[in-house]
């Protein structure tokens, strides 16, 4: 029963995705259909046209198992053997250093803005 519900709800999300793709295609939008589907679902939830109970189980399934859907595209780097062999270490360096820098800067900024706003409101 649980799996039937998840299946049906995933079906609803697939329909919204396909609807988004059609809209993107018809209107020649430079936005992927899945993003339009995202806004469609958000809008419908806000207006209560879709009840959250119709999609919640399917959404948590898709988001919870998202790592499974990543596997095939990652395996695709097999097509870029030369790139990995020639500059793999440099790529890894850029990714690790870059990620640390971005995380530190973002956390620092958010904490700064947070404190500034609290000081404002307490004064």
């Amino acid at each position: 029963m649980k799996w039937i519900r998840i299946g049906v709800q995933v079906g609803i999300l697939i329909l919204l995705n396909e609807l988004g793709k059609m809209i993107s295609h018809w209107l020649h939008l430079p936005i992927p259909g899945s993003i339009i589907g995202f806004f469609l679902l958000f809008f419908c939830l806000k207006r209560k046209w879709i009840s959250i109970s119709w999609v919640e189980a399917g959404a948590s399934f898709l988001l919870g198992e998202m790592l499974l859907f990543f596997i095939p595209p990652v395996v695709g780097i097999i097509q870029f053997k030369e790139v990995i062999l020639s500059s793999g270490i440099h790529l890894l360096l850029v990714i690790v250093i870059g990620t640390v820098v971005i995380m530190v800067a973002t956390a620092w900024l958010v904490e700064k803005v947070y404190r500034l706003r609290r000081e404002e409101t307490t004064e």
């Binding site: 999300l13 995705n17 939830l45 959404a59 998202m66 859907f69």
Partner: peptide, 16 residues
């Protein structure tokens, strides 16, 4: 399987 990444993007509307 990879296709399911697309409805997963739509699904982000639920936690939002």
């Amino acid at each position: 399987l990879t296709y399911l990444l697309q409805p997963a993007t739509v699904a982000f509307a639920v936690p939002m």
